[in-house]
Nucleic acid binder design. Structure first.
Lengths: 343, 343
DNA sequence: GCGGCTTGTCGAATCGGTTCGGCGAATCGG
DNA sequence: CCGATTCGCCGAACCGATTCGACAAGCCGC
């Protein structure tokens, strides 16, 4: 079922069928309709590979996700879903490619096999080999997260430094004098994971600014690690009454460990985080958090990429998001009687 | 950077380069090595579209996911991740396609544009238009879930009827005399969602077999609905002490509502469910559940599909999984003093 | 009534691979 | 030593679309 067959049945040439479909040249209304009838009858659709070969573009974008070993956070999941949806709206298909670990064949196929017109890179590191690779191949791309220093690329990111700083200020406003940061996993941060590093900076800066004690902890991305880190904090810094975190996956463990220790949230300990809104509300009490607009990010990432594919030479655009903190029930005044705050 | 360029630089013909790469005809070791050197130097890789056009296969499989409106359950998420990984191992790429709603253009592109060699369909309905469509197009596919009656397709599914029945038996063994089923959302079940319907059947049959009261409830796939359904159950059937569920998304709400009502799990109410193992353990107390091996399912689905692509004419295979129930802390004896059970 | 313009259609080239038939040279057996 | 085989490589056709140049027919103005 190819264009030649359609042409034969409609009694016209193949080029006429092509023009009737694309509208790139005038075709008389009569023949156009006749061709359309034949096409509808056989429900023909042009072969994607042939078209891609000739046109030099695939109408497909690549979504480069972290390898399966790393479980996706809720935020990332929302992001993937919204990318797929936004792409579908733009009549683009999405090719999924796990990268990192031993799956780099998939990424290489994507890039040098010219399977996609552009790519969206998740979980960018401060030094990221994939960015170098894509740039060398001349493939348009948009990063979720940004590399160090280098602004010569398109990206969209959440301003973790500011968000964590806000959490610290919020806790300080409530009168907390000793706070802890629960960061992402040691492996992630060690390999130059931007959000982790920037969160640590923002945390330290804000604590210093407010003149309160700030202790930063790394924590694996799972429930058990969440429990463990709370135990460590209680042992090493029992004076801590406020916690800021960007580790979604550890949250259930954090909650359970506090409960086991007989500590009430927010009466004894306040927690403010960065997480997907829907997820934040599933806790008891619901988590005060900066709700990352993952869906909006997915949509914008696709828009940015489409733009870049159309005009690869334009100066790259960046979007840095700083969503407001939604006050929920997991934060409260530092000490039962007093409320207000210094500064 | 095409095969002609490689041939020119290596001083051989294009066909020789092709044969050197594919090994489908003998090429002398000397020329083969020389060609390989040129290729390595320019890091050339064959254009995927051109190859697909000539070979008639794309080395890509489609993963047809429920549309973005429906949030993926943890189980489905694990499944997607494992499909991507298994495909990568088989050197296949994965094209994501949301289907249902108004995104059917994407699905149509996949099917009639010949963009993929085969497809994996998630969330199959008892009557599923996509199955009909794929069969008509002659595209190999594997379903996650199976249609009614018709066994003329490959699928892999979880035996929800048996699992829910097991939950009921487990509760009955513990002495519970009135149990409730918390099913998936009314919309899903109304549109012929197999697991929902089969779970209801298995629930009713098992309750009847054990001579206990069984009340089935539908429940939206979110926290708020979970709370609501517990309130309804308490109002309409306060005698219920055992709950079986396959609604992962409602679980947090169920837990919260029971806590608010002052009901202790498992002392006052026992809960047994079907859920992803890791997720089940994040509850307090951890959920007794049949742990769906989503990762294994993803891997097997890919294997099944690869098989089917290689030999489309072979009789279709089915895999029906019935994972054992892992006892965790959310189920216990029906009444505080007594332990044992009738039968 | 004829050159020039528009309109609608066609034929052929092209994209970048794979694969088949063929051909010269080397190798082998008798 | 000669015919038959094997080996290694080449040229050309082909996959199914798009697109450019060309060409015939119809219409205009002068």
């Amino acid at each position: 079922m190819n264009i030649g067959e359609i042409a034969r049945r409609a009694g016209v040439s193949r080029s006429t069928v092509s023009y009737a479909l694309s509208g790139k040249r005038a075709v008389s209304e009569a023949t156009r309709r006749h061709i359309q009838d034949v096409i509808d009858e056989l429900d023909y659709r042009p072969n994607a590979a042939a078209r891609a070969l000739k046109e030099g573009r695939t109408r497909t974008i690549g979504l480069v996700v972290p390898p399966a070993g790393t479980r996706l956070t809720h935020m990332q999941l929302d992001f993937v879903a919204s990318v797929v949806e936004a792409a579908a709206r733009a009549d683009l298909d999405v090719l999924l490619s796990p990268s990192g670990g031993d799956h780099d064949r998939s990424f290489e196929r994507l890039v040098s096999g010219r399977r996609v017109d552009g790519a969206i890179l998740m979980e960018i590191r401060l030094e990221d080999a994939r960015v170098t690779r894509l740039r060398k191949a001349g493939l348009p791309f948009v990063g979720i997260g940004h590399t160090a220093g280098d602004d010569d690329m398109c990206w969209i990111d959440v301003d973790y430094a500011s968000l964590i700083a806000r959490c610290v200020h919020h806790l300080a406003d409530l009168g907390h004098r000793a706070v802890a940061l629960i960061n992402r996993s040691p492996e992630l941060v060690a390999t130059g994971y931007g959000p982790g590093l920037r969160a640590a900076e923002g945390f330290a800066a804000a604590a210093a600014e407010r003149g309160i004690a700030g202790h930063a902890y790394l924590c694996g991305d799972d429930t058990a690690s969440g429990r463990a880190v709370i135990e460590r904090i209680r042992a090493e810094h029992p004076e801590v009454t406020g916690i800021a975190t960007l580790n979604e996956a550890a949250l259930p463990g954090i909650w359970h460990a506090l409960e086991d220790a007989g500590l009430h949230v927010p009466r004894d300990v306040s927690i403010a985080g960065v997480a997907a809104a829907q997820w934040a509300e599933d806790f008891r009490p619901p988590l005060t958090s900066a709700d990352v607009p993952a869906q909006q990010m997915g949509t914008q990432a696709v828009e940015l990429l489409v733009e870049r594919i159309a005009a690869p030479a334009t100066p790259p655009r960046h979007i840095l998001l700083t969503p407001p903190i939604s006050l929920r029930a997991s934060t409260g005044p530092a000490t039962p009687p007093s409320g207000g705050t210094p500064r």
